[in-house]
Design a protein around this nucleic acid. Structure first.
Lengths: 208, 208, 208, 208
DNA sequence: TGCTAACCGAGACGGTACGTCCTGTCTTCCC
DNA sequence: GGGAAGACAGGACGTACCGTCTCGGTTAGCA
């Protein structure tokens, strides 16, 4: 009875309409006040159409966030050979995104979705923060290979800090997230990671 | 007519019962599925009694978290003169708390409450993460005074990283938060913050 | 915990508003297309308020019908000593009611409610058709006492016919219910019920 | 383009499957809770196939009832020359059917369908109760011809009573419909309809 | 000792949203 | 073209909570 290609196929346009309505509403009212009913109405779609595709609010927001504004830009760290420059570029791009209220709303919604539902948290980790984290670790590991980073350091913990610091600032909402301090944090970490040659020659610290 | 002390005074016991019911329910079902009605029922209290004292779910959870398990322990950083040991002690205490599922739930609820309501975020910052952040900055500044930390570094950004790294791990829910990597992160940061050893050229560190 | 007089008392006005909205909607759209949601909206009331008081559509319609237009008039058969006149008066009043579209709608809704739900059917029988039927049987029995009706006849079956005949015409919807035939039916039944006149051969009446 | 015999002819088997699924479901859940979707699923048929052939629930149930169990038996009144015996046979057959819960369900559904939709009521009258009523009137009229029934009586009203009395009992659901009273009702009516025997004084008929 | 005000539990109130089911229409592939 | 499958917009279902309100019944300070 049931099989592939049976019945009317699901509409791509509907999928997109629902996701973009979700993004809009997340930015406007936040995760808590987001309702499936509101999303369906905004997208001009029946509620069942939403429930047919997503298990609930957390899954919907997860996919909306993943395919929306937060999708691409910060998951790649370039490798130009200059570790500090590469990380700084990435970090400033991230901070630039988080400085915009729209993006900050999405990140807060992401945190709420992850808090709401362990499955959504897993999905978000698998497709968003996980790859991002891995990318950072990879770039740092490449730094190890070329002697810019001391071997043996826990690169994962460093990546946690690079992601966690701006995340904390967004969630705390104490002040708009700016690039201030970005460079200092990066330098502190990189200096700490730099290989210590005997006698600490200048080139041991200077990783440019 | 109306004045202070007129009428029946608000019951302290009720206050405590509501807050502890809130904590229990946050741990059991999380912020999203927490309802005022459920809290009132668990506390054996009328709904009005809750609404009389708190503006809403975010305010209630905020106070519950602030007066509950997360209240005291991690807001103090000792100063024994050994910066690394002091920070490590604090960091490991924090990580130990976050490793418990009950505490992790509270932190996730805190993030949700802050995402839900800017007022609650402000309150949480003013009474929780703000002081904690300030305490870290103070301890680092004391390290500057005794020559353990290079002057001029953005200590606030470092504190962001010390708070943000474990926070990220709790929210990402990828794996239970453990002390693994804690020391490495701290060492990386502190090494980076350490004063220049003699003979290291200034431009090797100060990039501004 | 739960007890009488605890909490805010239920509003009488709300009760009436819901019942009269129900009657209006039954007349406008019929039982099938009546929705609790529509009733609540028309009555300016929350859905929960309806569900708090009635178990469902059938119970709601049952009470609406019982307390509304169908309530009083046709449940009494006068006893003036003249059986034919009393029954004719009652029957014509009933037929007059059923001839109005509004009343006919209520009766059709009553039949639908009884068909929908055995509990509602029981309630309707206990409070509406049952008493009406009993009233007819009583009046006929009084006729037996004064010698207007032959003893031994199944008065209940006759009452069934007096109620069922107009009921059938309303439900069949073949033509508006009018008084035509009313008198003839009554005469046929009453003649059949009359005591044997002296000299009439037994087999002329008793066919058993 | 479109014309008779174009394309695949409609399947007879499908028609029957849908109608018998409808009958089953009417008996199981009643008219109100019957859904087209449920019928289609039970019949193993697409919804469109149902909508292509019937205008809606009322039309579907109408046809299901008309072609099903209620179809044949009670629409014929034999004429053996003995009016009482013929009517009694028919009436007892009818009451026998209504005494079965399955048939009673169908009758209740018929009433609901007629209440739901005037078109269905018309169809039901034209093909079911109308012919049945006509058949009764015909048999009574034949009784007039052979002198068993007094001329001039409103035979239609009598037929209403013969149909309406058991109908009322089914709808009222007060007790299972049995043959008790059947004979008494019939005798009362037939006596009332019987021609005046010669020599019976006027007051013998005058039922006051 | 009695008055008045505020608190308290309970729970009804008008609403919003939930997640499910069904309606009647449509679109796809298959016969 | 008919037919099974199933997506679609829409709407109602019955439930859970929202935040407000109104009850009867405390529990205090003030007269």
């Amino acid at each position: 009875m049931t099989g592939p290609g049976r019945g009317r196929p699901r509409s791509e346009a509907v999928h997109r309409a629902v996701l973009s309505a979700t993004c809009e509403l997340v930015e406007e009212v936040g995760y808590e006040r987001l309702s499936i009913e509101g999303v369906a109405a905004r997208a001009g779609v029946g509620k069942q159409t939403v429930y047919r595709r997503w298990a609930g609010k957390s899954a919907l927001v997860t996919e909306a966030v993943l395919t929306g504004r937060l999708a691409v830009p910060d998951q790649t760290v370039r490798d130009t050979g200059d570790l500090r420059a590469d990380l700084l570029l990435w970090l400033q791009a991230l901070v630039g995104l988080l400085g915009q209220e729209a993006t900050a709303s999405l990140v807060r919604a992401t945190a709420s979705a992850a808090a709401d539902d362990a499955d959504a948290a897993g999905e978000l980790y698998a497709r968003f923060t996980g790859p991002l984290h891995a990318t950072l670790v990879d770039r740092l590991a490449a730094g190890v290979d070329v002697g810019q980073v001391r071997p043996g350091a826990d690169l994962s913990a460093v990546a946690d800090a690079l992601i966690g610091a701006p995340l904390y600032r967004v969630l705390a909402r104490a002040e708009p997230v700016t690039t201030s301090g970005t460079e200092d944090l990066l330098d502190a970490l990189l200096t700490g990671l730099s290989p210590l040659p005997p006698g600490v020659p200048a080139e041991g610290i200077d990783r440019r």
